[in-house]
Each structure stands twice: as C-alpha cells, then as structure tokens.
Computed example of a mutant assay.
Amino acid sequence: MKRRSSAVLLCAVFALGAGKLQAQNKPKVKYLSEPLIKSIYTADPSAHVFNGKIYIYPSHDIDAGIAENDNGDHFAMRDYHILSLDRIGGPVTDHGVALDIKDIPWAGRQLWAPDAAYKNGTYYLYFPVKDKNDIFRIGVATSKNPAGPFKAQPKPIPGSFSIDPAVFTDTDGSTYMYFGGIWGGQLQRWATGKYDANGSKTDLMHDDEPALTCKVAKLKGNMLEFDGKVKDVVIVDAAGKPLLTKDHDRRFFEGSWMHKYKGKYYFTYSTGDTHLLAYAIGNNPWGPFVYKGVFMKPVQGWTTHHSIVEFKGKWYIFYHDTELSGKTHLRNVKVTELHHNADGSIQMVDTYTEAK
C-alpha cells in the first residue's frame, strides 16, 4: 500500500506539473466580436428591426446544476429577456423578463430558442417549450410593445412540434414559420407524423436515407395558427439530390433562419454536431433549396444558432459563443457584419482565432 500510495502521489505531482505546462502553452484566443451583454447569459439570438431599432430575442441561459447530456437537459431556461440597441456598437438595453415559464399555462420545462414577428399593431413571441408530457411544442405570446412583457396563449399552436421557430415575413405580407431540431429537439421522434416517445434518440441509425429536415408552415393572418399542412424544407445538392443523414457537414440539424436577398431566399441553418453554419438558396419560401456552402466556422462552444438582419443598408449576423463562461450551456450573444458577394454567395465568417 505504501508503494502504491507513493506511486499515486508521484503521478499526481507529475499530472499537476503537466497541467501547469499545458496552461502555460494554451493558445490565447482572439475573438471577432465582444459580447453584447455581460450581466446575464444569452444565446440563440433572433434579431429584428422594429421602429428603427434592433430588438434581439435570445434564450436566457442559467446554470441549473443539471448534468450535460445529448437530450440537452442542462439547457434548462426558465424565462426570456429581450435586448435592444439603436445602433451596432452602441449600448444594449436589457428590458428584463418578457415572459416567464410560470405564466405559460401548458408549459412543463425548458424555454428554448424563441423568435418574434409583428403584424397590425401586435408583436408576437414564438417559443418552444416542453409541455406537461415532456414533448416540445411551439407556443405564441403577444404584446403591444416589442420589448414586452408578453402574454402567452392558453395552448400551443395546433400541429406544432420540436424546437427553434424562425418566422419570416415575405415582401407580399405572407408569413412563414421554419422550425425543427434533431436529437434533444425531438424532430426524429416525429418521423411518422406522430410522436413516438420510444423513437430514436438521434438520427445516427439512418446514414443512407435522406436527412431529417426542417419543417415549414404558413401562418394564418391572426399569426396564431398554421394555414395548411406542415411541409418539409427540402435541401438538395447541385445535382438535385436530397442530402443524406451521413452528410454531417451539410445536412440540417437545427437553428434555421430565412432571409431574402436580391429576390432569392436564403435558408441558413446549423449542422449541429459538426458546428457549421450552412446556407442553401431557393426561388420561393417553400423551397427546394440548393446547398451552396458553409458561411460560418464553428464558434467556441458546442452549439451554433444565429439570425441575419439588414439594418441601415448593411447586413449583420447575430450569433453566440462561450467567451464569458467557457461552458457550453452558459453562452453570450454577439454580432458582426455579414457580406454577400456579387454572385450571391456569402463570405466566410471566422468568429475567433488562436494566437501563439
């Protein structure tokens, strides 16, 4: 026992010395942008221009003390804070709690990434949250003020499921919701059109099949219901073939967004477990969308979730990383300019570099 204890002690001393050496040699990180706010942790920023200002609708990360897992149980958000700024680079206002999970009658747990829209004097906050049966649904809350507070509808949107609602209003006034996320987002459990609680936890068992993909539905004029059936957002390669599940660098995972540029519809999304932001272009809001490439390299942290907005003649991408905490579930939102090339492609964004 003495010999073993001595050996253990020697190993511990060696490990401590090695740890110090690694810390000394650890590359310094230079970030492209600063966190927009440091008083709370925020993520998944959905940005919109309302009344000449930028309003950001993010997740509000908290440390709930839950162990990290593939279902994302450690992302245990309980409310939303809305942020605003008059100009890029200017001061950011935190408008406080806009909606709390205790004020959503049908909610169970986990208020994940929201989005917002405006129509006819009313602002709409769309949010995913697990219901009392632990199934993700998408709800909607309303306010006369873009900063809230918002009042939730008594029930989720009929026919809604999964996570990450992204709401796009076209130039003709029609509004569409894009939504869905696999793994913890439960999209794979809806493969048959009905929820299967015993379905696959991930999508990894179907490599040679067309990848699970985002969903899209048109919203009715009241902005509270789907107008017609939920459809697949089909992403194809240059030859017109759907992307396959095993194509982890290109297939859809979560975090969709839609923006329109020079008459074309840009469907952007996260590849999830490969941490890339990719884009595909179509001729209408329904698709199909032809995959064009990656436009943002992986951020620091596991997840990548973004929004793209035009403001005062320039385009910006809002995103998050883990600069403040170094923990994947405690993130901070950021913004940087986004550039479209003359041929319609999007220039690459690299959010950080490692300096020697």
Rank of each mutant, 00 (worst) to 15 (best):
H275P: 05
V233R: 05
F311C: 10
G263N: 05
T271P: 00
V290W: 08
K218V: 04
G301E: 07
D227K: 06
P298V: 06
M258Q: 05
W286G: 04
S307H: 02
Y279A: 02
G173M: 02
T175Q: 06
L187Q: 12
N284A: 04
H259L: 11
F179R: 07
V216I: 07
N222M: 03
G272R: 05
L276G: 11
M177R: 09
G287C: 00
L212G: 15
N198L: 04
G193A: 03
V234Y: 03
S200F: 14
K292Y: 02
F179K: 03
L244D: 06
Y265C: 07
K246F: 13
N222R: 12
K292H: 10
K215P: 10
D227G: 12
Y291S: 03
L212V: 14
V299M: 15
F253Y: 13
N198H: 07
K264R: 13
Q300C: 12
K241D: 06
G287W: 03
Y176Q: 02
G263D: 01
S256N: 12
T271A: 01
P285E: 12
G301D: 07
Y265P: 03
G228E: 01
F252Q: 07
T303I: 06
D172K: 11
G185Y: 06
E209H: 09
S174C: 05
R250I: 01
T169K: 13
L187C: 07
R250E: 07
D170H: 10
G199T: 00
G263M: 06
L212H: 13
G282Y: 08
Y178A: 02
T303F: 10
G228S: 00
V299G: 11
A217E: 03
A238E: 15
W286R: 01
G287E: 02
A280P: 05
W190T: 02
F179H: 12
E209V: 13
I308G: 07
T303N: 10
K201G: 12
H206E: 15
G255K: 10
F226V: 09
G173F: 08
A239I: 01
G272E: 02
T175Y: 08
A280M: 01
T213I: 07
V290A: 12
F252Y: 14
D249N: 15
T171A: 15
H305F: 09
F226T: 14
V233Y: 05
T271W: 00
I182E: 11
D273M: 08
T192R: 04
F226C: 05
L212A: 13
A191W: 14
N198Y: 08
T169P: 13
D237N: 12
A280T: 02
T271M: 00
D232I: 00
L219Q: 08
G282Q: 14
M223S: 13
G184Q: 04
